[in-house]
Simulated assay, not measured.
Amino acid sequence: MTTWNLQETFCHFLICNGGSCMKRQAEEVTEAIRDEIILRGADRQIHTTRTRCNGRCSDACVVIAYPEGIWYKDITPELGRELVRRHAARSRLKERIVYSFEQRFVATGISVAGQDKQGRGLSWGEGECSS
């Protein structure tokens, strides 16, 4: 198994390849993001990982950027390329943010209420991560 040298990495994209995202071009999004990284010569600075379902199926296709913990929704191949360009410039694609983790869990103007791990519904403010 290969172990990547991540010493220069400052951004890690987790690209959802769950069922709903696959129906919304997740394969094409993954390829576009990886192609743009190569095109920009940023393969040592930006890393990608395909994931299974991230639990935000209504927001498909979902891409998560770490270390910021920014969750992006409705990503298309074109927006995937824009994500790479923005993050390479240390910026964000603000109009596509579902929610983000900064010093604590922060709402970005879009409701993200959902269910906790036990299947109970949450209203905003419950179950927040604290710093």
Rank of each mutant, 00 (worst) to 15 (best):
H87M: 00
Q103A: 15
I37V: 03
E27R: 01
L122G: 07
T108M: 14
R90Q: 13
R40C: 12
G119Q: 06
E126K: 15
A32I: 01
S100G: 14
C21R: 02
F105S: 15
A113D: 15
A113C: 14
T30I: 00
V62C: 03
G69M: 08
R90W: 07
L6C: 06
G109A: 08
M1P: 12
L122F: 10
E78S: 09
E95V: 11
G121L: 09
P77L: 07
C21V: 00
H87E: 07
A88K: 00
D35F: 00
E128W: 13
G41D: 08
C53N: 04
T30N: 00
L93K: 04
G127E: 12
F10A: 05
H87C: 04
T51S: 12
R44W: 05
I15P: 00
V62I: 13
Y99T: 14
E82T: 12
R40Y: 06
D74L: 08
G19I: 07
K23H: 07
C129E: 14
A60F: 02
M1C: 10
C57D: 01
L93R: 08
G119T: 10
G114S: 11
W71R: 11
S131K: 12
L93F: 06
I33K: 03
Q115L: 12
E78M: 06
C11W: 08
E27Y: 02
V29S: 01
M1Q: 11
E28P: 02
N17Q: 13
R104T: 15
T51V: 07
I70W: 02
Y72K: 09
M22P: 00
A60M: 05
I37C: 04
C16R: 02
E78Y: 07
G109N: 13
R90L: 09
F10I: 01
E126I: 14
A42P: 09
E28F: 02
L79I: 03
E8D: 12
E95C: 11
I33V: 13
C11R: 10
G55Y: 08
R40T: 05
Q115H: 10
H87V: 00
I38D: 05
K94C: 13
T76K: 02
P67I: 13
A32T: 00
V106S: 15
M1N: 07
F101D: 14
G125N: 09
G114N: 11
Q118V: 06
C53V: 06
E95I: 11
C16A: 06
R92F: 15
Y72H: 09
N54H: 04
E36W: 06
A88R: 00
R24L: 10
R92K: 15
R90F: 08
I15V: 02
Q118T: 06
T3A: 13
N54V: 11
R90V: 09
I64L: 11
F13N: 01
D59Q: 10
V29I: 02
C11G: 12
T9F: 02
T9G: 07
C16W: 03
L14P: 04
I46N: 05
D116S: 08
E126A: 14
E36C: 04
W4T: 12
D35T: 10
T49F: 03
K23M: 03
E95T: 14
V63H: 04
E126Q: 15
T49M: 07
